[in-house]
């Protein structure tokens, strides 16, 4: 028997109540991430993948009109039973998040060094500026930043998107979180830079044994990054299993459509697929363990 999973979600539902009624966003999600595991959550925009990250983070609990049902456990602890401040305690220490566009996600009026120090003080409130600098330099080295001093003294607008992305990855991992949530990381960057930074991120989480929930609409990127994949469609998980197995043998009609939607450079261009189909609502398919 393994330890309690880093993250275990069962029957998670989410609905928003507003003046026009109730709209259900998540229809019973089950998802587990074990220690050191990299899990991909793939789906189109509006499928509910980003709200799952916000629920795990605990920031959606405080939004008016949001009704969250089901069970979310972090390292065995039930999040529903936590107070607002207890959930806040987890963020930045045991949980951290990487955002889509690194340049707008960093504060424009503080230097990288200052922002690093703030994040470090989430983990160790007594950290001095000097110690903070040493620790930041260390982790920036791990994301292959060489001119650390210049970067720490810079403002985000003075760095390239790729640099900011490395900074954000380093910042997210500096407090050694149990779980890293990556919401479409680097989608705002160009493809080559995105590939480089994802490579760095993968090496880093491997070394640190960090579990990752990797959220993306891009199957190619997820294939490179994740050990296991969940495919989500309209708030339901439609197919789950080891990455290799799903790519070798997509069985759910929606997964097949998603894979067919990848444009090919060699002829064909953007493929024609149905926008919606009854078959996309077929029951969930679970793949067995990948053959060793």
């Amino acid at each position: 028997m393994r330890d309690a999973p880093t993250l275990s979600i069962s029957d998670l539902t989410l609905s928003f109540r507003n003046w026009s009624g109730v709209s259900q966003v998540l229809h019973g999600i089950d998802l587990d991430i074990h220690k050191g595991e990299r899990v991909g959550l793939v789906g189109e925009s509006g499928s509910g993948k980003s709200v799952i990250a916000r629920i795990i983070l605990g920031t959606l609990h405080d939004v008016k009109g949001a009704q969250i049902g089901g069970d979310v456990r972090l390292g065995g602890r039930d999040m529903a039973g936590m107070s607002k401040s207890e959930r806040g305690e987890l963020r930045g220490t045991e949980l951290s998040m990487i955002f889509q566009d690194p340049t707008t996600a960093l504060n424009p009026v503080y230097t990288i060094g200052m922002q690093f120090l703030e994040v470090l003080r989430r983990g160790d409130s007594g950290m001095s500026a000097e110690d903070g600098k040493v620790r930041s330099a260390e982790i920036l080295g791990e994301v292959s930043i060489t001119d650390v001093d210049r970067v720490l003294e810079s403002y985000p607008f003075q760095l390239s998107g790729g640099m900011n992305q490395r900074v954000m990855i380093a910042m997210a991992l500096v407090n050694e979180p149990q779980l890293l949530l990556a919401d479409e990381p680097g989608t705002a960057l160009d493809v080559t830079v995105q590939a480089q930074t994802l490579e760095l991120m993968r090496n880093l989480v491997e070394q640190h044994g960090t579990s990752v929930l990797f959220i993306s609409h891009n199957l190619g990127v997820v294939r490179e990054f994740a050990d296991r994949i969940y495919v989500i469609y309209k708030g339901r998980i439609v197919e789950r299993g080891p990455t290799a197995s799903i790519f070798a043998d997509p069985r759910h009609p929606y997964t097949k459509a998603l894979m067919a939607a990848i444009p090919r450079l060699t002829g064909g261009g953007v493929p024609d697929i149905a926008e919606e189909s009854e078959s996309f609502f077929d029951p969930m398919i679970t793949h067995g363990e990948a053959p060793e």
Partner: peptide, 8 residues
């Protein structure tokens, strides 16, 4: 949102 995600 990033600051919120760090639990400040």
């Amino acid at each position: 949102e990033m600051a919120q995600s760090y639990g400040f």
